[in-house]
């Protein structure tokens, strides 16, 4: 069985001058990071560019000794990529675009109700953050919230599944929401779109 060297050790080795450690890190996370970027931009060339820019930032940060290893390496790299994706879409929004003539505006009849890509990315991020916040709730409250919001179960079904009364299930849901708000307030978390 092949033992995998931890990311933190590879980073330390890289900072100490071992360039091969960087190669291992890039290859280890290549697919995950590339797929993440591609899922947002849907273009291979742009994915390649953002992947490259992400690791240029990683390299510069590590070489300057500015890497703060409070979190894990991959989430940090994903966050850099996420910011670059947003930059990419912001930059593209400033590109020339079609302007309707005075006589007919195509956008008066064509309407796209989907979220634009920037809002979609923000929404995905909120969804991910919310899942982490829900993990912090007490188990009984978390179960009710997950059954109600994610599994779309009625309070009657929740009560049958958990073996408590409907009123108790309702109470747990109420406290789950109160506690979620409390966690959000205490940590100054901004969940907005």
């Amino acid at each position: 069985m092949e033992l995998q060297i931890a990311d933190s050790l590879l980073i330390q080795n890289y900072i100490n001058g071992d360039e091969r450690a960087l190669e291992t890190l890039i290859k280890r996370h290549n697919q995950r990071l590339s797929s993440f970027i591609y899922s947002k931009v849907n273009d291979r060339e742009i994915t390649e560019d953002i992947f490259q820019d992400t690791f240029i930032k990683v390299i510069r940060t590590l070489k300057k000794g500015k890497y703060n290893e409070e979190g894990k390496f991959l989430p940090w790299v994903m966050r850099i990529a996420h910011n670059l994706i947003i930059d990419h879409f912001r930059k593209n929004r400033r590109m020339p675009y079609f302007e309707a003539s005075n006589t007919f505006d195509i956008f008066s009849v064509v309407h796209d109700e989907k979220l634009n890509i920037e809002k979609q990315i923000i929404k995905d991020q909120i969804d991910e953050d919310l899942v982490l916040l829900i993990e912090e709730l007490p188990v009984d409250q978390r179960d009710v919230l997950v059954m109600r919001m994610y599994k779309d179960m009625s309070f009657k079904e929740i009560s049958e599944n958990t073996g408590v009364s409907i009123n108790t299930a309702l109470g747990r849901m109420r406290y789950a929401l109160i506690n979620l708000r409390k966690i959000i307030d205490e940590h100054n978390i901004v969940l907005t779109n």
Binding site: N30, I59, D152
Partner: peptide
């Protein structure tokens, strides 16, 4: 919040890109 997440398509950066990064780092 119950929308299904879209499945990620597996994509890899090209070897040239990785070589560029390794050379840049060196």
């Amino acid at each position: 919040y119950v929308e299904k997440k879209k499945k990620y398509e597996k994509v890899m950066a090209k070897p040239e890109t990785i070589d560029f990064l390794l050379n840049y780092s060196k």
